[in-house]
Structures are given as C-alpha cells and as structure tokens.
Nucleic acid binder design. Sequence first.
DNA 1: TTTCTATTGTTACATATTGTTACAATAGTA
DNA 2: TACTATTGTAACAATATGTAACAATAGAAA
Lengths: 270, 270
Amino acid sequence: MFLRENILYLEKIYILAQKKQILTKEDYIPNLAFDSVIFGFNGKKLKILVLEYRNTGLYALPGGFVGRNESLEDAVEKGVSERTGLKNIYLEQFRTFGDMKRFDPEPMKRILKMNGLDITSHSWLLDRFITVAYYALINFEKVMPKPDPLSDGIDWYSLDELPPLMMDHQQIIEKALETLRENLDKKLLGMNLLPKKFTMKELQQVYEAITGTSFNRSGFQRKMLSANTLLRHEKRFSGNSHKAPYLYSFKPNPFDNRPKTYITDGSGSR
Amino acid sequence: MFLRENILYLEKIYILAQKKQILTKEDYIPNLAFDSVIFGFNGKKLKILVLEYRNTGLYALPGGFVGRNESLEDAVEKGVSERTGLKNIYLEQFRTFGDMKRFDPEPMKRILKMNGLDITSHSWLLDRFITVAYYALINFEKVMPKPDPLSDGIDWYSLDELPPLMMDHQQIIEKALETLRENLDKKLLGMNLLPKKFTMKELQQVYEAITGTSFNRSGFQRKMLSANTLLRHEKRFSGNSHKAPYLYSFKPNPFDNRPKTYITDGSGSR
DNA sequence: TTTCTATTGTTACATATTGTTACAATAGTA
DNA sequence: TACTATTGTAACAATATGTAACAATAGAAA
C-alpha cells in the first residue's frame, strides 16, 4: 500500500513537471497558438479528433504553442504526432484566426482550476491568442489517440455528432472542411485517409464522405482510372458471394517533388 | 529663415512622434506581423506595390503589426488602406509564414539606423516574427501609393521586374500568385482589378495577365457570357476605325451574402 | 453440379461542354 | 464607296460527362 501510494505520488510529480514544462511562458511565442482539425475515415464516415478537458464539460480541438526557436510547422507536426502517435502526417495550413471575439479567458480559467494549476502564475494563458489552423488527414486504423496533459479524454466524433466546442472551434472545423473539399479535386487527398491498398468502392466512399454527395459508380471509376494515378493490384477475396474487386494504390507522382510524407506547400514556410 | 527652421524642427518632432507611436512595443502583439501583396492591373500587366527603405537599398512588401486590441483583419485593412489611399479593399488571407529562416535581424537594424532610430530601444523589432500574408486586388487607376514612415519610396513593379526583396518576401509573392490563380475560377476576382465598366477584351487581358496564358477569344466570350454574371451596357466608341465593343459590368451576386466590399471569407476570423 | 444473387468492370450511347474556324456586322479612314 | 481592324456570333468538330445496360464472377443455396 505504501509502495502504491508512493508510485502515485511520483506519477503526480512527473505529471506536474510535464505540465510545468508545457506551460512555462518563456519558452513560447506569446499570443500565438495553433489548432488542428484531424480527419480520419472509418469506412463509412468522416471523423474528427476532439479533446475533452477534465471535469469541465469543455471540448476543444487539439492545439498547442510554438516554441521561440521552433518553426511553426515543426510545432504543429510535433503536436499532432503527440495526439495521434503517428509520424509523417499529411498536414495543410488553411487559415489564421485573429478575431477579437476569440478573446475569452473563462474556459481556460476553468481548465486551469480543474487541473489544480495556479491562475496568476499562468495568466499568459488567459491572454488573447491568434491561432494558425491546420487540418490533418490520417489513416483511421493506425491511430491511438492520446489526450494532452490538461485533458482526460480524446475521441473521434462524426461531423454531425460533434459536442459543443470551445470558442470558435466549430467555425474552424467548418473552414477546414470547406478547404478540404476545395482541395479534393486538386490533390490526391484520398490516399491519406485510406490504407495503402483499397478498392474502388472504398475510394468512392471517401470522396462521398468528404463532399457529402454521392457519385455515379461508373463515372467515378472512369474518371479515377483516366486520371492515370492509380496502380491496379491483385483482387481482394472477401468471402462474400459476389465478384471480387481489384485493389488499387496511388502511384507515386513523378511530378510531385515533395517527399512522400510531408507538410504540404514548400513555399518558404518550412 | 528662423521661421522656416522652426517649421522644419516641428515637422521633425511630429515625424518622430509618429514613429514613436508606430514603433512602441507595448501597443502590438509581439512576434506577429502581416504582409500584403497588393496587385494592380495597368491594362497590360499585373503589378505589385513594393516599398523601398531610405538609403538602404532594401525592398519589401508593405506590412505592419497587429494592435493588442485590434482584430487581425482590421489591422491589415488599415495598413493596406494607408499605403493605397483606398477603402473597402478586396483582401484575401492566403498563408502564415513561420519558418525560422525568416529570423534575420540585419535588414531591420539597417532600416532603424538609416532612420536615426535607437536600436536598443527598438530591439523588439529585431526579434523573430511570424507573418500572416494577405493579397489585395485593387483598381490600378484609383490608387495613390504612399510610403510608410520608415520608407521613402513605394512603387509598382511587374512580376518579371521585381527588385531583390528582403527576407522571404519573394516567396510570399509566389505563393500569393499561386493562390490568386487557384481562386480565379472560383471567384469573380477580375472585377476587383478593373474599372466598373470594361470591355470583353479588357476582361480577357486581366485573365491572361493573371494566369500567364492566352485564351481563345471566342471561347472566352462564350464562357463569360454563359456564366451569367455579366451585365451588358452601351457600346464604347473609342475613335478607332473598327467595330465598337460593348461595355460590361459584373452583376451583384444574389447568392453572395457578403457586403459589396469586403474582406473575403466570413468563417469566424472577422 | 447447377442455379442464384450481389457486386464489379466495361461498354454503349445520349447529352453537355469545349476548341476551332468561319463569317457577318460595323466604326472610322482613305 | 471601298477598305481595315476589330467585334459578336454561329457552325462544326472534338472531348468530356451522365446514364443505362451487360457480361463476368465469387460464393451461397438448391
């Protein structure tokens, strides 16, 4: 019993040390944060990772701060990796939110209080923040969501079953989805939400989940194949009594000079 | 003579007071700036407004800082208005640049020195900055460019005759142009670069200047007219010996619920 | 084995969109 | 009145897209 309590005590110290490290003002650029809309596809629906803060009933997008000597995108990569357990994540910056309406210290006060943290010594967290928003596309099956030090929960939510979110996070999600839809035709985004090999039907389901519309099966297949970006592999025998579909993968694009896994957009921000 | 010197002295004090106001650290969000790529169309080519700093040989995009109690977009609107003399400018945020490579205090040191400003008391300007970049589309004929307090020159440059620019401003321009091209099909951007009434040929020239390609005259006309967004007005008799072209204007879009002049994108960042 | 069903890959054809050329209209000049 | 440069539009060809039909087939059921 003594041992167990001792371990719990050490654990508590460790967590506090972690918190202290994470919440020291001097290490970060003040008034600047990032937020991430992490999309996954479960085979049917598009989902988003949402954090729940301890005993507050507050829900939020996973976010973080930018180190004084750290590039913006390194900070985001690190933050999203910590929440998902994945590396080399497809990330795309889509907007920076700098409205005064964002300035509401009350939620953060509650979060600090419920985590037993002193408000005065963390007052910089109650200040105004401008946030750079990114969306991430990840393979749903590979992810092991982990809450951040101030949260006790992190979970997948479909777009139509989102909990009430803090501040302007609902609007951030809407803008993320809007951008994702605009980018869908321009880039090969589907690949980042699917396993390496997939059927034409699965690909179509991803497109339908993202756009919220349905496509004609025949036309979709023709268009995808004519784009000349898919490699056909062996059939997949599912054990069901019907014709087995081919598996496909995306061709590596020879005209795409970015590394295979990347933060998109090489235009100087990296 | 005494009077004249006195006036000059007062003027100097006034300018210094202005500078002091503009350069006081406490008034702004630290480490955060904005830059603007201001596009204009002179009838032939797409041009950009570029600042030249006093006696330094340094060229830069017009930019500024965000007040502690000011929304990001209000700051940008104000800044671009001050450089162009225009109000209600079409502005679009396209990317936030947060690379460590941006961190180079030397240019700012030279600028402060050449303006007779003390480096130690303005050291916050030598710090690292993350910048939110916007592009603006304006009617070339209406603008009266005005330099900012630290610059002695502001001028139009075509894309293929840009001077060597500070830091990563060249990359910011490239990304602005890329985004402008992507948005050209989605939105009615041409209208912001032309006078209210224009001919089909002028509209085509704007499109060609932006995309850097040429279009078939007949097809361009058909597509523009079929989009059902143009109003046809009287003919324009130029005095040249050939058929007079019709003048057109853009229809106000009834499905566009934004005010007629605006910062685009209502998604929470305003 | 044969028949049946659900699903898949492909083709066929109608319709819509785009690219290209041709031609008539016309404002001013010679 | 003829001529020139430019403009608006029609005509036709080439492509792309929407829709439906059909054949192939993996397993289940008979």
